[in-house]
Design a protein around this nucleic acid. Sequence first.
DNA 1: TTAAACTTTCAAAACTTATTGAAAGTTTTT
DNA 2: AAAAACTTTCAATAAGTTTTGAAAGTTTAA
Lengths: 168, 168
Amino acid sequence: MELAEAKSKFIEAWGKLGSEWGINRTMAQVHALLLTSPVAMTTEEIMEALSISRGNANMTLRDLIGWGLIEKQHKAGERKEYFFAEKDTWTIARQVAQERKKRELDPILKVLNELSSVKGDEKDPEYKTFKTSITSINKLAGNVNKTLETMLKAEENWFWGSIFKIFK
Amino acid sequence: MELAEAKSKFIEAWGKLGSEWGINRTMAQVHALLLTSPVAMTTEEIMEALSISRGNANMTLRDLIGWGLIEKQHKAGERKEYFFAEKDTWTIARQVAQERKKRELDPILKVLNELSSVKGDEKDPEYKTFKTSITSINKLAGNVNKTLETMLKAEENWFWGSIFKIFK
DNA sequence: TTAAACTTTCAAAACTTATTGAAAGTTTTT
DNA sequence: AAAAACTTTCAATAAGTTTTGAAAGTTTAA
């Protein structure tokens, strides 16, 4: 397989994975493009490479910066902005985890905590089932939350090292 | 807060979380409904409770069965099919992880492995960057895969116990 | 065998989300 | 101060996804 072909396969696969996990396909593709580019790229070049519009490129780039996955670079004597991707995979994983935790896990934890405190008649099967389910989901969500928080602080080697010592 | 209100808040929140993670909103809502229901419900009752059409209810129920999250129940002397949800949270988490691993992680691992073996000129920065990125993502994906496989086999207490001993 | 009870299918419609591109905005250069 | 180089915005539109509901299919009962 040629490098160019491999690269476009990767961009496609990354985009697909992104969209299956609720991340905009274009965003994942731009990220893949920059990840595999040895040099920083301009908006124009990115538009060209992925055949997307200026507006789309601009919004996507801003979002990626918001997620902490890419950065702007200014070249001396040039007006254009160049973009490049953070290349360390562990950092990428952490940034994504952090962003999604903030946007999705935190709000649901809030709701679950509220719902855990609903009072009712212990004899009522409706109430008992509700209570039991919520409590148990709440516990799991709390554990996921704790795990993520630790992961967000963790250094790569320490993290994987520890996990795989147990998981063998 | 009243039980009925709490229940509908939960259904809504669960649906929202689902849709943010690429799971059909209705599917997550039906799941939430059955999770918090003390008794098995018929298609008719589910349609009624969530104001959804027969077709939608039927497809969603089949999908949930496909994910191993709910089961059919036949009551003696009745023609109707009743549905109820697996209530153990740990099992739910495992089923979801398993399904998504199969559908999404496995295919991307296959692509990454293919792409890892692309050969090229070590002096070419294009090639070197591509190679480095793919290899490092491949390594992370492999680790995620290993972790999931272990998790899929794990018993609840053992799993969380071990994780949180380290994560403290 | 016919009818009733129930389930499944699927094309069309509704809804949601992503993308375009032209116009407006900003900054730098001349 | 005007033009050029570049970035941002956003209403319109396109693309993708979900939902509907009526018709077809299946199973059981009479």
